[in-house]
Amino acid sequence: MIRWFAGLILLACFAAPAVAGPDAAAVNNAEFKGKPPGDDKINPAIVKAQVLLDRANFSPGEIDGKLGENAEKALKAFAVSKGLPVGKQPLTSEIWGALLATGSDPVVVDYKITDKDVKGPFLKKLPAKMEDLKDLKSLDYTSPREALAEKFHMSEALLAALNPGKKFDEAGQTIAVVNVPVKEGKPAVTRVEVDKASQTVKAFANSELVAFFPATVGSEEKPSPGGVLKVISIDANPYYRYNPDYKFKGVKSKRAFKIRPGPNNPVGSQWIGLSEEGYGIHGTPNPSKVSKSESNGCVRLTNWDVDRLAKLLKKGTEVAFIEREAANKK
């Protein structure tokens, strides 16, 4: 079932000043030195690897320039798809070479902020309590910075680091963003696998893996369903309907209520309904938490990943939930 993070407040407008990070040239010219970075700083080579993974449909989740859990998952899946060895190091010279072979377009490019980017409307603040969301006319972004970061699959911290001293609320200003173009063509996905153990989603066209996503999949308290379900609906910009039978932590309402659409809606930008009532694959207002927190049974992806997956699916597509025991035998 769908989860809301109680107490979540997006503080994009009040974030601490960004520390300058690598510039476009540093990222575009980055080379892998044979050893993964050992700190938590934004690394040009990791930004490059994440962008190349995203382009290849092996999503690292939020592109943040750090070799975190989701980037490691994507690198492993990409390596397996290319028949490369997978060891203790998530990034190797062989994997780096295979990533570079996927394309030569610049990884970071200039982008001119448009009137639409800054027009809004924007929320001044996202209420902490789920019940308070029902009174909002829409669940918009909280700032142009948040909207631009999501548009280019980036963390707000990386966006700010690539653009030190720049504001993001002025149309006509040129900023540096990562280059994640949308691929043409839509392979006919015949099956989706949700791996509960690894917290991942894979989309297959017959036996070929065509897309990979990190995900948040259920919890021990409220696990995701088992077995094979089917897609019964695909709804962009969905309303969220809270059923008091869900008994979510932090939600005291004993009456059902409805929350209007928007990227900061509890289910994000997309709802892919499944054939077991109350369960689906959906987006999130907090992309940095994907696969790093628990859900109430549903499958949570970043908004851009669930939008990408939705374009590959049709009603009736099989969605198989792989149990922990089965996953461990693979």
Rank of each mutant, 00 (worst) to 15 (best):
R3P: 10
W4C: 12
G7E: 13
L8E: 12
L10D: 14
G21T: 03
P22T: 01
A24Q: 08
F32R: 06
K41F: 01
V51N: 00
A56F: 08
F58A: 09
P60C: 09
D64P: 10
N70Y: 00
V80F: 00
K82D: 03
K82S: 01
T92I: 13
T92F: 06
I95N: 11
W96L: 15
V107W: 00
D110R: 14
Y111W: 05
K112Q: 14
I113F: 04
D117A: 08
K119R: 15
A128C: 10
E131L: 07
L133Y: 13
K134Q: 15
T142G: 08
A147V: 07
A149D: 02
E150Y: 02
A160Q: 08
E170T: 14
Q173Y: 01
I175E: 01
A176M: 04
V177T: 04
N179T: 08
K186M: 02
R191G: 05
V194T: 00
A203Q: 03
A203K: 06
F204H: 12
A205N: 12
A205K: 15
L209D: 07
S219R: 14
G227C: 08
V228S: 13
K230F: 03
V231P: 08
A236P: 14
N237V: 03
Y242N: 05
K247S: 07
V251A: 10
S253F: 09
F257C: 15
P266Y: 00
G273R: 02
G273L: 05
G273V: 10
L274M: 14
S275R: 04
I281R: 07
P287I: 03
V290P: 09
K292M: 06
V299Y: 02
L301Q: 09
E325A: 15
A327P: 14
